[in-house]
Design a protein around this nucleic acid. Structure first.
Length: 183
DNA sequence: CGACTTTGACCAGCGC
DNA sequence: GCGCTGGTCAAAGTCG
């Protein structure tokens, strides 16, 4: 978990790196994760954006070994937990936002599949998965207990399909929230 | 009735 | 080895 902290640059540097630079591309029919991926690819010395990429060359593993047979043939081990096989992590991107709502409407449809209480945090962490068939993108949403206005959203994986609805809505939400810059 | 949420249980990884 | 913690599953419940 710790390998996925964020950072936006401090607000002091907003002139050189306004947080919304991160977001602007969304309007181009791009989903946040994709955008962030770009950041990841350039991440040498970038932004302070931190990702949780583990030996993941990059983004071409859209359909990962984690893929769970949607048909539900189970009985196999849990996905991605094969013996001897190194745990493969998809690229992860996290960002903090200051928002009233936990769930940012980023244009994709998500299904909640779990919620856990997190240590040192009075708010639970929620786990969501993209409902699009074949798309294994996941995200975690957590509100900070020390600053309840701050929501941390972590994306894992890359969407393999076009966005489902206009991101105008997302932008609208963005316009209502402030990017948190606590570092 | 389908899509989604809730929630307890289960499992693996990790630190001690 | 053990206990803690994070991540996921899946059954049951809810909602439109």
């Amino acid at each position: 978990m710790e390998n996925c902290q964020i950072l936006f640059p401090s607000s002091a540097s907003s002139s050189s790196f306004p947080p919304f630079h991160l977001i602007a591309p969304f309007s181009n029919n791009m989903a946040p994760p994709n955008v962030l991926t770009n950041f990841h690819q350039n991440r040498n010395g970038l932004l302070g954006f931190k990702t949780g990429v583990d030996n993941q060359p990059s983004i071409d593993n859209n359909t990962s070994p984690m893929e769970r047979t949607a048909a539900g043939s189970e009985n196999e081990m849990k996905p991605g937990k094969k013996k001897g096989e190194k745990k493969v992590r998809k690229p992860r991107f996290a960002f903090q936002t200051r928002s009233q709502v936990d769930i940012l409407d980023d244009g994709y449809r998500w299904r909640k599949y779990g919620q856990k209480a997190v240590k040192n945090n009075k708010y639970p962490r929620s786990y969501y998965r993209c409902t699009n068939q074949g798309c294994n993108v996941k995200k975690q949403v957590q509100r900070l207990s020390k600053d309840e206005g701050v929501v941390v959203t972590t994306y894992e994986g890359i969407h393999t399909h076009p966005i489902e609805k206009s991101t105008d809505n997302f932008e609208h939400i963005l316009s209502q929230m402030q990017i948190y810059s606590g570092y």
